[in-house]
């Protein structure tokens, strides 16, 4: 392994350890629930950022794959009772396959058309969920709970163990996506985003690069859906509704697109806002909307992007001040 890869793995391990120790310090079940929801939405939003931030493809239909993950996993567990790891794996495969079909049509399209056709596919799947009552439970959602047979001594009916499982999936999912954006493929994706024509001249297959990103993003979004379905012990049509995609776009805007962990930060902000504002304010939509406007018009970027740029600017200033002679020398 290269040094950056080792560093990422060490950071991931450290992150997991912190999350693992957390319940030993406090027994607050609100905190535990918060982290599980962060894991579900964090994976979902980070996967969207593979498309938006790294691929320059703004999808308004990404919720499709979140819902696909929750429903596939829920239905598999209810109908077959297969081991949970196998069901998770199958869910990832199903979502990747659906993403391949949807992506094959969508990634050829330019900006606004891409956004709207992904949205159209999402609404198609949402309608299917509503209409296919015998399988999906229609607008009532997938009820009756999701069976959780113990595997490898892990019992996900226990909230603490579900917490650790979610934290592990979050950390592993983030690590995998981090690896993707740091691979030669990740850089080809950035080139396609910046200048697809020139990327083509250099021998990059633009279509295949975009499609691969779309499939990977779909798979990781569905992993978020799996965690959510375990958390609520069911699946609901809202998971595949356009508001779900909208929430992910908000999260990405709040946290920032230029830094890998931006969407995770954004997830934390949105969930905190959601929890506090809905409890204290009557017109919570007004407050949430104002905060988003503040970020969009005030900072003009997500929080993490803003902080990182500020730090970088401060570093260069600090580097410049102790050596005024050198600065003088280079500026002439």
């Amino acid at each position: 392994m290269t040094r950056p890869a080792l560093r990422d793995a060490a950071l991931a391990l450290a992150g997991f350890l912190v999350l693992a120790i957390l319940p030993l310090i406090t027994s607050s079940s609100a905190l535990i629930d918060f982290v599980i929801r962060c894991a579900a939405l964090g994976l979902f939003a980070t996967s969207l950022n593979l498309l938006v931030g790294y691929g320059g493809m703004v999808s308004f239909g990404h919720g499709l794959f979140f819902g696909m993950g929750a429903y596939s996993f829920g239905i598999l567990m209810q109908r077959t009772g297969m081991p949970i790891p196998l069901a998770v794996l199958l869910t990832l495969c199903i979502s990747a396959l659906v993403a391949l079909v949807v992506g094959a049509i969508c990634v050829r399209l330019k900006e606004i058309y891409f956004a709207f056709v992904t949205l159209a596919f999402q609404m198609l799947v949402h309608s299917m969920i509503i209409a296919w009552v015998p399988v999906t439970g229609g607008d009532q959602g997938l009820r009756g709970g999701i069976p959780r047979p113990a595997f490898l001594g892990i019992n996900l009916s226990d909230q603490k163990q579900l917490y650790l499982f979610s934290a592990a999936l979050l950390v592993l999912g983030l690590l995998a996506m981090r690896h993707i954006v740091s691979s030669p493929f990740g850089y080809a994706l950035r080139m396609v985003r910046d200048n697809a024509t020139r990327a083509g001249f250099l021998g990059i297959n633009v279509y295949r690069t975009r499609l691969t990103a779309f499939v990977l993003a779909g798979a990781f979004a569905s992993l978020g859906g799996v965690i959510m379905s375990l958390f609520v012990s069911g699946a609901y049509p809202e998971f595949a509704f356009w508001t779900m995609s909208g929430e992910a776009v908000f999260i990405v805007m709040l946290g920032g697109t230029a830094n890998f962990l931006g969407p995770l930060v954004g997830t934390g902000i949105l969930l905190l806002l959601n929890d506090f504002v809905t409890r204290t304010a009557e017109h919570h939509g007004l407050v949430l909307g104002s905060v988003i406007l503040l970020f969009a018009l005030g900072l003009r970027k997500g929080l993490l992007d803003f902080v990182m740029e500020w730090l970088a600017a401060r570093r260069t200033r600090d580097a410049a001040t102790p050596a005024p002679v050198a600065v003088k020398g280079t500026s002439t």
Binding site: F185, Y187, R190, D194, G203
Partner: peptide, 25 residues
């Protein structure tokens, strides 16, 4: 060019595309 990449990243990525490694994950 590719505005968001540094000079070095641009060339490294271009060479890896030229060597047909652009799809490597």
């Amino acid at each position: 060019i590719f505005p968001s990449l540094t000079v070095e990243e641009t060339l490294l990525a271009a060479v890896s595309a030229h060597h047909r490694h652009a799809g490597r994950l």
